[in-house]
């Protein structure tokens, strides 16, 4: 069981996102994908579930494989039982309750005519509870704050509960405490249930704390992947962001990365 990229080449509008990407996302792992704005992190996530065309110069069917089978050989509905994504933002202009919005996560598991039953509703309510929204299940979506809407998106993915959680900046709009809560919840889930998380994230400190593997996407298709401890160094981060990064501490919970501004000229050694 794994989600693998083999010699994957991706580009968008003539801009190369990655060349010859070889990577294996395995059960129980929590990956962080980092890179500057516009480097193609979201596009990579989309390609992993077949929603963005890969470059065809190499064998398209080989490049992305789920459980040793090309993702293109899966029916969309089958794929949706194994992979799911929480997008960076949603544009939703229609009235709906929080519970209704969460229940769409059950779609891949229902027949065409089936109406969600109490079992599906229970799953959605549990997901809402885990996302900290149990009191809001009957609220109209339009009345929620930005952070609460993010939690609804997460609850939808938790209801879908796929093997591979693709998360595009899941903690943006969330306050500090909520960021810690959500990421703790996710990382525990991946550790305990053998599911896998692949998360685009900008904050190196959160990535250090919660992700056990890191993929860095540099410009022009270069990349670097591996264990967090090896990859997330101040040198690599300085190269990634083209900006001097300093590091304080080295432990699991007291490491801190922060950029050094040229004008400040102060930094930790």
């Amino acid at each position: 069981m794994s989600l693998q990229c083999r010699h994957l080449r991706l580009s968008i509008a003539d801009k190369v996102i990655c060349k010859d990407l070889k990577i294996s996302f395995n059960p129980g792992e929590f990956w962080g994908i980092m890179g500057i704005n516009g480097v193609g992190k979201t596009t990579l996530l989309k390609s992993l579930i077949g929603l963005h065309e890969v470059d065809t110069e190499n064998d398209k069917n080989m490049c992305i494989q789920l459980n040793n089978q090309s993702i293109y050989s899966y029916k969309r509905l089958e794929l949706a039982q194994k992979t799911g994504i929480m997008l960076q933002e949603y544009e939703y202009n229609f009235p709906s309750t929080v519970l209704e919005a969460t229940l769409i996560g059950r779609h891949p598991f229902l027949n065409q005519w089936q109406i969600e039953d109490t079992h599906d509703e229970q799953l959605a309510l549990q997901a809402l509870k885990r996302a900290g929204l149990e009191k809001l299940s009957q609220r109209a979506l339009s009345t929620l704050s930005g952070g609460e809407k993010r939690r609804v998106n997460l609850a939808t993915l938790l209801t879908q509960n796929p093997d591979y959680y693709l998360l595009d900046e899941p903690v943006n709009h969330l306050d500090l405490k909520a960021q810690m809560d959500i990421l703790t919840l996710l990382s525990n889930q991946f550790k305990n249930s053998g599911q896998c998380g692949i998360m685009v994230i900008h904050d190196p400190n959160l990535a250090w704390r919660f992700c056990d593997h890191i993929l860095l996407l540099f410009n022009k298709g270069e990349w670097l992947a591996g264990d967090t401890q090896q990859i997330l160094t101040k040198d690599n981060l300085s190269r990634l962001y083209d900006c001097k990064i300093q590091q304080a501490g080295n432990g699991k919970n007291d490491t801190f990365f922060s950029p050094v501004l040229e004008s400040e000229g102060i930094g930790v050694k």
């Binding site: 992979t83 997008l87 544009e91 939703y92 202009n93 779609h107 879908q160």
Partner: peptide, 17 residues
């Protein structure tokens, strides 16, 4: 039911099968 999900946009709908 697919119509309900379609309102969330192409990507979300695609990822839900």
């Amino acid at each position: 039911r697919q119509l309900n999900i379609m309102l969330w946009g192409d990507l979300q709908a695609g990822s839900l099968g």
